[in-house]
Every structure is written in structure tokens, then in C-alpha cells.
Design a protein around this nucleic acid. Structure first.
Lengths: 213, 213
DNA sequence: TAGATTGTTAATCGATTAACAATC
DNA sequence: TAGATTGTTAATCGATTAACAATC
């Protein structure tokens, strides 16, 4: 299947549409217009229409889009169909929160297990997923053909965990530790930096408060 | 103090620079060039220089920037100087993880307390911050002059929590629940959508894996 | 038919990159 | 002086918006 290319901005809006559509009360005839989506999310209607055109061809003049079909089209586009196995390393607060997040499936990511250094956690189930001791990481990731590793350990351990994941065949790393990981060229790293949002929030608020003066 | 305007893209890169500079080993003469930063973060050197020019005027030809001064300039620009009080609502896994995140201060956000519906949590300290029962939210937020509320409760409760925060005078809301909150016009909402990153990761990986075929 | 809505083509806007002058 | 680096001005690139035709 060809992977269509899509701009980063558009790609960031698509999950919002999906999210919004899923949260809509499903009452009877479930059609929705691009304009309604745009209003709800504070975007331009033309922009929404253009984004959706990349994903679905189900829009009908005067009627809008069939919500269920649009959800299905968005999920297909975003990867629902070809499932990738993932593990989380680090079963602390953040790791647990991620284990409890139910939305992975919609993006084609299947969370198989967690790993933790703490032997007391190993053997437990968290949100229905098994926790294994860190020593078994390489062995099990190799065996389970894990493609994505999610790093939720303290900054000091992140590089080491990253190396172990790469050795066991992981191709993509979602890094929640505030560190710049070094990886071989064929491995993809995506940094999840809470500080980015924090800065944006802080700045927007400062601007807003300043306006009012 | 005037709040300079800065593009969204630039604003998203500034915390990365700050992060990187802070994680650098501080060995002797601590100068760093825009090119070095760019290489480390996978950006263009001209872009880094242009971003930094908005924040600092400490760059010297041939020498680069003084790392400590650049850190200070970034923090000042990002709001370190004018501190805003915040609370977290919801002391579940995610709330706890946020309470343990030490980086708020660098962006001028001071985390005062957490609230939770669960009476058993109230009275405890988590990562050194007090947890109060949800019933006291309005009273205490009003009294403490809280400006930012961080919502880390399940989706079903988010709107209700949001309303309570707004009533008690909160001006900015950082929402981790996958819901579109409705707020009065003078309140700022920033949605933290893990699904956005997830989608980006999933798509980038699919593209990467497809390339190799 | 008239009105609402989609989808496309052209114009505008903004961000990135390239080229270059300034400086230590 | 020569080379490395900053910072600025102009050119390019890409994304958003506006205008409009198509359609139910």
C-alpha cells in the first residue's frame, strides 16, 4: 500500500478531527459538515475540507460527510489497518498513565507489555498489560517482533534503554525523557517534549493577560 | 513588559534549545555555536540563529553564544520571570507524573497543589505538593489566586472540572482529557493531545518502513 | 429552483533557506 | 590576515485563504 505524503500541519489536525468525531453524540442521521467541524475546533472550513479530501472522498454537497465513514477513513489513513507492536519501558507514573491510555489502537499501535527495572513490579498486570523485568527486554522484544519502543524512564537511563531497544530490533522510539537520544540512522526517534506545550501555554497566556491591560 | 510576538514554529523550537543547552555537560569555557545546536537537533543553522536572535543578543562572531547567558535569555523570554500559579486537578497516574515533572519553573509556572475526588488522597503529599479534596477546589483556587488549571481527570469529568476552575478565576487551562472543552471567551484552553504525537509517530514510521522496501 | 455544501484553482501570506556583509 | 561565525536582506518554498464552479 502506498503511503501518501501529507504535510506535518495537516497530519497534526487529522487526529483532532478523529477525536472530535468520536466524541460526538451519535444521534440518528449522523452527517456532519466541514463547517461544523471547523467551528467546533476553531479552524477554517476550507482548511478542514482540504484536509479531509486527502483522507476521504465521502463528502456530499448539501449533506456533508457520513460521520462513521469519516471516522473509518481517518483511522485507515492514520494507520489503523497495519498494526505495529510496541512496548513501554518504565512503569512509573508516566508509564502507567500511558498503559491506561486506550487510544493506541486507533493509530495501529498495539501495546504488548511494559518493562521495569523494579523486580517488585515484574509479574504484575497494569491496565491489563503484563510487566516484565528489564533484564528480559532484549529477549522478549526480539521474540515478539516489537517495532516501537516507548521510553518512560528517567533521563539518566534513557540512552541505555534506547540502545537496548535498538539492539533488539526496534525501529521507532517514542521518547518521553528530556534527552537527545543518539540512534543509528535507520531508527526513528520522536521526542515527546512536555516543555514545548508548557512554553506555548505560558507564552499564550502572557500575551492574553497583557492584552487585557 | 511588552510581550514580543513570535511565530508558533519558533516558539516550539525555543524549549528544545533550552533543553539541549541545559543537558550539555558544562566543561570549562562554555561557548556554543548556532551550528552546533543545529547539528545536535537536526535543524538548519540559519534557522537556529534567527530564532536565537529573537531571544538574545549575546552571539559573537567566531565565538558563538555563552551557554549560561543563552539559557538565562531563553528562560526570561519564555516567562521564567513572571511567575504564574497553577494547580493540577486529578491525582491519578498522569497527575502524579506531572507533579513529578520538575521543569515547570523554567517556564514561569509554579505548581501549588493538586486536587482529587478521592478523599483518601487528600491530605497526602505527592512529590512534595499537597493534595486537597475536590470540594475545596473553588475556595482554595480563589484564595491562592490560581491562574492556570491543569486538567488530568477522565474525559467524563473534564467539562465539570473546567467549569469549576473557570468560576474560581482561572484564566488558562491545560487540558489532558480527550474532550473539546467549552469555556468563556476570556479563558485560554490548550489541549494536550497525546493522539497527535501518536499519529505523527505512526505515520512517520509507516513511511520509513515503506521506503526500505 | 434555491440554497447549502463540497472540492478545486488561483492568490496571498508566512516561514524557511540562500546569499552575503559585518565582525571578532 | 584569514577563517569562523553572527546577523541581515532577498529569494524560495509551502501552507493557508479566497474565489468560484460543481453538485445534491
Amino acid at each position: 500500500m502506498s503511503v501518501q505524503s501529507v504535510s506535518k500541519q495537516t497530519l497534526q489536525r487529522l487526529p483532532q478531527y478523529l477525536n472530535f468525531l468520536k466524541s460526538m453524540p451519535r444521534t440518528g442521521a449522523a452527517n456532519i459538515s466541514a463547517t461544523a467541524i471547523a467551528d467546533a475546533l476553531g479552524l477554517g472550513d476550507v482548511q478542514v475540507r482540504k484536509d479531509l479530501a486527502l483522507v476521504s472522498s465521502g463528502g456530499r454537497p448539501k449533506v456533508g460527510y457520513d460521520a462513521d465513514r469519516l471516522i473509518a477513513d481517518l483511522e485507515r489513513f492514520l494507520g489503523y489497518d497495519d498494526v505495529t507492536s510496541a512496548v513501554i519501558v518504565g512503569a512509573g507514573d508516566l508509564g502507567r498513565a500511558l498503559l491506561g491510555y486506550g487510544g493506541f489502537a486507533a493509530y495501529g499501535i498495539e501495546l504488548m507489555a511494559a518493562f521495569d527495572r523494579d523486580a517488585a513490579l515484574a509479574g504484575q498486570n497494569i491496565h491489563g498489560k503484563p510487566v516484565f523485568p528489564a533484564e528480559r527486554l532484549k529477549e522478549l522484544c526480539g521474540r515478539m517482533q516489537i517495532r516501537i519502543g516507548i521510553i518512560a524512564v528517567p533521563a539518566e537511563e534513557a540512552q541505555q534503554v534506547c540502545d537496548a531497544l535498538v539492539e533488539s530490533g526496534v525501529r521507532g522510539i517514542w521518547n518521553f525523557a528530556p534527552v537527545n537520544l543518539s540512534v543509528p540512522e535507520n531508527v526513528l526517534v520522536q521526542n515527546e517534549d512536555i516543555a514545548v506545550s508548557l512554553a506555548v501555554l505560558s507564552k499564550r497566556l502572557a500575551q492574553k493577560l497583557a492584552e487585557r491591560e
